[in-house]
Design a protein around this nucleic acid. Sequence first.
DNA 1: GAGTGGTCTAGACCACCCG
DNA 2: GGGTGGTCTAGACCACTCG
Lengths: 245, 245
Amino acid sequence: MLDNLANINGLPQYIRIRESIRERILGGELVRGEKLPSEDELAMVYGVSRMTLRQSLADLIDEGLLYRKHGVGTFVALQQFARDHTVLRNFIETSKEEGLNVEEKLLDARLTSAKFQVARALNLEEGDKVVCLKTLRILEGNPITIHEAYFDHVKFSDFLEGNIEELSKDLLAYYESKGYKVKRGIQRLEARSIENDIAEILQIDESTPLLYKERTLYTAEGIPVEFLYCYNRGDLYSVTINLTT
Amino acid sequence: MLDNLANINGLPQYIRIRESIRERILGGELVRGEKLPSEDELAMVYGVSRMTLRQSLADLIDEGLLYRKHGVGTFVALQQFARDHTVLRNFIETSKEEGLNVEEKLLDARLTSAKFQVARALNLEEGDKVVCLKTLRILEGNPITIHEAYFDHVKFSDFLEGNIEELSKDLLAYYESKGYKVKRGIQRLEARSIENDIAEILQIDESTPLLYKERTLYTAEGIPVEFLYCYNRGDLYSVTINLTT
DNA sequence: GAGTGGTCTAGACCACCCG
DNA sequence: GGGTGGTCTAGACCACTCG
């Protein structure tokens, strides 16, 4: 009765209810700090059992949109955190959503042999064949990031024969199309001095520090999919991270 | 029947079952990639309903220890991710657990007026009174990090009258003791060139880049608790982050 | 078709908080 | 004491996967 966009056929009830509540919060119908009706009441309003209703709330609490107080009630959080946990997002799409002018330039794409660090991360043997994909990302005309991604040539043997320019724009989608849906990752960040070749590509001098990143991506099963080196201009690039206890 | 440490009285069953399963995995009884018994069977073994058992599994799946395949079964993940989502941890305790020699030196603790950025982060007005706590962290004899934390003097008025040396060793515990349990946070990382005063304290020259961090901590309700500037030696310090879709 | 996880119900009792 | 969320049950039917 309260749903609109959330009322798509085929979706489980708890998802439709969750989205309905989310819309009521984001739309301003439920104000920050405001108490929601009790679980019993919400379950009645939405016409489901309390267990089902709690499944809806659980997701929103995990996202930081709601919080519970035992014996008191459920409330809309004062501070809105990440709407979802999506830390892994496609760089180009994300930047475009923010209205930024983004270009991506293919620097190199080739078959090579895995060195120690790459092999270890991808659970391969040193010397095994891997695809190396190097790209430069340009934000509002400024070269800002060099990406150097490695992935198993056995799992992704058709990459180099495909439309590399196109495929490299959304590697996550490409991995998924091959049956490797990325679910988790581990990344490590460092501040580094810049090296000559990197300085040249990013068109900066050697006094600018570099935000250096290493990242490994995995499926839900824990299969490593990609290992990445990433060199970011320190003065133009920063990384924002949501933390939870 | 299978529990031991997980069999503490007073704990909900789903937590005891969860910990029992976790122990069976970490203890090697359940191997990576191995299929668990079906939910029906596990529920019977543990003597609970299937819904209760699923609550146990949900936590372990969220942690990345297990994954499910619809119509197939539940499996132990191949790669073990963070055992829990605890990204927020006490630096000193964590380092000690890793067997590292850690010292913390109090540099400054005083009452001051919130400048623009601090005021905005803590939801205060510019000029409102805040406590500023500056500490130096020394790892294995190397000065590695300068922490500059700010928190509301109204919420935490007794800090400066307390044993500052002691309290500053676990600020999260101090905040919690005042009714502000930290649940979430947002942090931002940058690579920066070093400034004179920082270089002097960290005993490094100005060619070493700095891993600069800003962080705001919040309660589950979304109340801001602490705003922090953090200056880390780039060549000795790196930040590891777990990502999820 | 058999087995698995995904969703859902209509109750129940408990622990916690507040007036 | 009354209202709230926390935990738990004993079923049910559906959707998916595989042989």
